[in-house]
């Protein structure tokens, strides 16, 4: 299809080559190009510099650039592979690739582990899980007593912390997540399977029209 050929994808020239990104990921070249539509929209929503800033990420997720959310923060930090405070197009595509329906489960399990390992110690620790449960209750305007929260954390550790050392290591997490696939629900975005359908505007807008007018 001429309308989605990479030759015509001139506007992404300052970003990484879609062919390289397609080679490294589950996405085809035209899907990478369609993702550029989404990237462009998000990265121009506030700062218009072609990079996604945290506020823009929050705006895309919540329609609100000031909404503080522990998990959105974590996801943003994991997307920011170069740790420079912004997400460029290559980081965006490589990170979203983990959420592709056809990406191996092992990659999704590992990403979720890093998400939950709040302090990057290599383990999901009790205090981290406690903190995350509080955050989720807070986000949902739910109140539970400290005892009830402790109980949830205890229960979870009873199931996941197989060697009983008070922290969940990557192998324990792998076993636990494999046994409970519902835990990985958020790690698959069906939208990514038909990304060119989700962003038909790319197909309509791409090509010579904008470049030559």
């Amino acid at each position: 299809m001429g309308c989605v050929s990479s030759k015509q994808f001139k506007r992404a020239a300052e970003h990484e080559d879609p062919a390289i990104l397609a080679k490294e990921t589950t996405f085809s070249v035209s899907e990478v190009e369609a993702l550029y539509e989404l990237f462009k929209k998000i990265s121009h929503s506030i700062f218009k510099d072609g990079l996604i800033h945290k506020e823009e990420f929050q705006l895309a997720l919540f329609r609100n650039s000031n909404k503080k959310n522990l998990f959105a923060d974590r996801i943003f930090d994991l997307f920011d592979l170069k740790h420079n405070g912004v997400v460029d197009f290559g980081e965006f595509v490589r990170s979203l690739n983990i959420f592709h329906p056809e990406t191996p489960l092992a990659e999704k399990i590992s990403f979720a582990f890093r998400l939950y390992d709040l302090r990057g110690t290599g383990y999901i620790e009790r205090e981290e899980l406690y903190e995350m449960v509080l955050a989720i209750l807070n986000e949902s305007d739910l109140f539970l007593s400290d005892d009830a929260v402790e109980q949830i954390v205890d229960q979870t550790f009873k199931q996941a912390d197989l060697n009983g050392d008070g922290k969940i290591d990557p192998d324990e997490w792998k076993a636990f997540a494999s046994k409970n696939p519902a835990l990985l629900k958020n790690m698959t975005l069906p939208y990514l399977k038909d990304i060119t359908m989700a962003f038909p505007s790319f197909v309509l807008n791409s090509g010579v029209d904008e470049e030559e007018l």
């Binding site: 895309a60 997720l61 919540f62 979203l96 989720i136 229960q155 979870t156 835990l183 629900k185 958020n186």
Partner: peptide, 25 residues
Amino acid sequence: RTCNAFQLISSMSSGFDLSGMFESE
């Protein structure tokens, strides 16, 4: 049915649900 903290997070967190990003179209 036992309550599991990670289940709670994955079913309730809006920040860990990236679909919102695709629904703004």
